[in-house]
């Protein structure tokens, strides 16, 4: 069963299958990046292979083997639900080289390709949503590359600017909630009334809650409006 997968691939693609191996029973075929998507699509569509069950896509970094060989190995693992066999498809890409996405073949490739991009910086051409997934957008570098030191410190990042805040749900005193977004500048300058009402009063600040914004703007509070009672 197991040899049949590699034999079938070699019969179909011939010299395009650069290397095959079966170390410890794991069938592996290596292809060029240009054949990556075509071989993957064949694995899925062929009636003898039917590799319909997506398993994983990952990468390995070999900085020391350049320039004889490209730097990264990208590995696809798939199995067949009906035939119960597996294969490991591998390709080698340079730093900065884009690889065809496999999302049209297996939708499950979406998040794993994003993770490979996140951790190794390998981009996938035609991927519908090429964002970082586990790390944040402002992260500098790609942590699973061998040249990324494990104890590297990341820079502090600015607060993100959110467009059209009005579209967000009601939040803050003016919208009927008793707390507000934290105004760090005001907190540093001692104008903040949100830390603790007791401390704020001691420091001569005015009450938190919804009246604070009214006071801050110099408007009279409802109970101070003359002639109300």
């Amino acid at each position: 069963m197991s040899v049949a997968v590699l034999a079938r691939l070699q019969a179909e693609f011939g010299a395009k299958i650069l290397e095959t191996s079966s170390f410890r029973g794991d069938d592996e075929a290596i292809v060029a990046p240009s054949d990556w998507a075509a071989v993957a699509a064949f694995l899925r569509a062929d009636s003898e292979l039917v590799m319909d069950h997506f398993i994983d896509i990952t990468a390995i970094d070999y900085p020391e083997r350049t320039p004889q060989l490209p730097r990264f190995d990208v590995v696809l693992l798939v199995r067949s639900m009906s035939k119960n066999h597996r294969v490991r498809l591998k390709t080698r890409v340079q730093d900065g080289e884009e690889l065809d996405t496999l999302v049209p073949v297996w939708r499950g490739a979406n998040w794993t390709e994003r993770e490979v991009f996140d951790m190794f910086g390998i981009r996938f051409r035609g991927h519908p949503d090429m964002r970082r997934i586990l790390l944040y957008e402002e992260f500098v570098g790609y942590p699973l590359r061998k040249d990324y030191p494990i104890d590297k410190t990341q820079p502090l990042i600015e607060y993100r600017k959110e467009d059209n805040l009005e579209k967000l749900p009601p939040f803050g005193p003016t919208e009927g909630q008793p707390w507000n977004r934290i105004d760090w500048q005001a907190r540093l300058e001692g104008r903040d009334m949100q830390v603790s009402p007791a401390i704020a009063v001691q420091q001569g600040q005015k009450h938190a809650l919804s009246e604070s914004s009214a006071r801050a703007e110099g408007k009279p509070l409802p109970d101070e409006i003359p002639g109300k009672n």
């Binding site: 319909d52 069950h53 997506f54 639900m81 297996w106 939708r107 499950g108």
Partner: peptide, 20 residues
């Protein structure tokens, strides 16, 4: 079908009727 294509495994896959 979607579950298989997405690589779902475990109890979640079996709940759709795949005995894997």
């Amino acid at each position: 079908d979607l579950a298989i294509e997405m690589g779902v495994t475990g109890a979640m896959l079996r709940s759709t009727g795949v005995d894997y």
